[in-house]
Every structure is written in C-alpha cells, then in structure tokens.
Simulated assay, not measured.
Amino acid sequence: MNSTPIKNEPGVVLGVLLIALLVGLLISVLATGFHTGPLRPGINTVLLGIYIMAWGAMFLASYFYSHKTFFFRALIWVCENWSHPKGRRMALFYAAIAILFGCVSILSGFGIVGAAA
C-alpha cells in the first residue's frame, strides 16, 4: 500500500471558478427579488435552494479533495478552526445541513412544502 502523502495543488483556476459559480448564483438570487421572512413559492426561492445546495456540495468536495485547490483548503480550515466540535468531519455535517435546507427551499419554491394558509 502506498502511504505517500498527497501533495497540495495550488488550484487557482479551479478555486476561482468555484467562487465565481457561488457569486453567480448569489447574484441570480438577489436579482430575482430576494426577500427575508418565510419562504414563498417562486423562482427566487428555487434559486436560493440551489445556492445553498452549492455550498453544501463545496463542503462535501472539500472533505474529499482539499488537496486540489486553495478554496477547498479554506473550507476545511473553517471546519478545523471555527467549528465546535473541530475537525474535518464537520465538512460532512455542513454539507448535509446545506443540502437538506436547499432541498426544503427548492420544494418550497415549487409550492410543494410550506404552502401559505
């Protein structure tokens, strides 16, 4: 079995593309009329869910591929330094929470969950 450590790659292009994806999704959420309060059916709520799920996917990818880009290493750093409990596995927890909340937001955006009475 090969036990050589994985060498960190700079991954500048990948990191910038991932950040641009998140910024693009955030701008699309804000451009479609983001509002605070309860989730209402509409395209802005669906886009918000996609944005939240994208963050979940980033945390999930950072757990497995933190050696690929500076952005994933930064997310792992957050998990290891700003979380309680501290550790890499918090990336899996954050991914699960973001994907769950993103799904609820998308379902609310389509009017399937949380229909206003």
Rank of each mutant, 00 (worst) to 15 (best):
G15A: 02
S108C: 10
L22R: 00
V104A: 11
R89N: 15
V113R: 09
T36Q: 12
A31R: 14
L22Q: 05
G15I: 00
V29Q: 10
G37P: 13
A54Y: 05
S28T: 14
A31I: 01
G109S: 04
S105V: 00
K68S: 07
K86F: 02
L30E: 07
E9Q: 14
F59K: 03
R73G: 04
R40P: 03
R73K: 08
L17A: 12
L17M: 13
L75I: 02
T4E: 06
Y51L: 15
F34P: 04
W77P: 00
F71S: 06
I27G: 15
G11D: 14
G24H: 09
A116T: 04
N8V: 01
V29M: 15
A117M: 09
M90D: 00
I6V: 10
A54K: 09
F72V: 07
I99V: 08
I43N: 11
S83Q: 08
L48M: 13
R88M: 05
P41S: 13
T36G: 12
S105C: 14
T32R: 14
L47M: 15
L30S: 01
Y51G: 05
F72N: 09
I43P: 11
A117G: 09
G56P: 03
L25P: 04
L21D: 06
V78L: 05
G24W: 11
K7T: 10
V16C: 14
P38H: 08
C103Y: 04
N44V: 12
A115Q: 12
L18I: 01
C103I: 07
A96N: 00
I76Y: 00
M1D: 01
V13T: 08
V78E: 00
A57N: 13
V46W: 11
F70K: 00
L107W: 00
S105A: 14
F34H: 07
L26K: 02
G33A: 12
F70G: 06
I112H: 02
F71V: 11
V29Y: 07
I106W: 03
G109Q: 09
N81P: 06
M53Y: 04
M58C: 04
P5L: 04
I112C: 00
P38A: 07
R88T: 13
R88W: 07
R88N: 15
L26Q: 11
V12P: 00
E80A: 06
H35F: 06
A31V: 11
P5G: 05
F34K: 05
N81H: 10
N44G: 04
V46Y: 11
E9N: 01
S105F: 12
H35E: 12
A95F: 08
L30P: 01
F70E: 02
G15N: 01
N2E: 06
S62D: 02
P38G: 11
A98H: 15
G114M: 03
M1V: 02
A91S: 15
P10S: 07
L22S: 07
A91H: 11
F34G: 01
I97N: 09
F34E: 03
N8R: 11
F72W: 08
L92T: 03
I112N: 05
A95C: 12
I27S: 13
